[in-house]
Amino acid sequence: MNILDIDSLTMRFGGLLALADVSFHVARGEILGLIGPNGAGKSTMFNCISGVLRPTEGDMLFEKDGKLMRINGYKPEKMTHFGVARTFQNVRLFSALTVLDNVRIGRHCRTKANFFGAVLRTRSQKEEEQRIVDESMNWLKFVDLEKFVFNTAGSLSYGFQRKLEIARSLATEPRLLLLDEPAAGMNPKETKSLIDLIHKISDLGVTVILIEHDMKLVMSICRRLVVLDHGIKIAEGGPREIRANPKVIEAYLGRGAADA
């Protein structure tokens, strides 16, 4: 069963064709790599899936309650509710708030206390707050950030900020997680622990789509890859196939890569 079907998706910005007739599917539980040179339309694809952009043409189908439903035109908060979470290419944290608060905001879409609950401090509101804190702490432990609970998010090192963003998106209980260049700016040790983390996320049953330029990382954790170039899908397949594909070598990997 596929969790996501992208069917001839096209995204136009005025005269610029950011995505042209791209189709691929994502099976439930897999880790799919989305690669390609800068400006290939990878982040645009994420923005379409997560509801930030509304695609010009084509369909996006997302599995919900065992059926595929068309998700074109839903707002980001609705997509989060359906079970799509994402991180951003340039980290977007609530940097003046604490690490805990960042993850607590991630719980927003799975909780429901309102103004009256907040002001009257009803029993159900208090219990919900306690649950939010407990679950947030679990996610912080999951990404090894429990030492920094009360630090402000902006004061964390870059690698930790990336992890916090992942924790925040996991707190929304996604079934599909979109990771936009999670290893960018990380040192080799941090990259290593990121690989472990992505495996751990996958073990939870969360489907992952990964945009990444670090080929070692991509080739080691993705069973399947989709390659975009100038908005066009130029290849799809396993790491070995992709590495040998002349079109991909020409557009992205460079000639040295085939031997590496």
Binding site: T80, A85, R92, L93, S169
Partner: peptide, 13 residues
């Protein structure tokens, strides 16, 4: 702090 991130956390802006 960041309205795009807020909506991706499920906050209806």
């Amino acid at each position: 702090e960041d309205s795009i991130a807020a909506s991706s956390c499920g906050v209806n802006l």
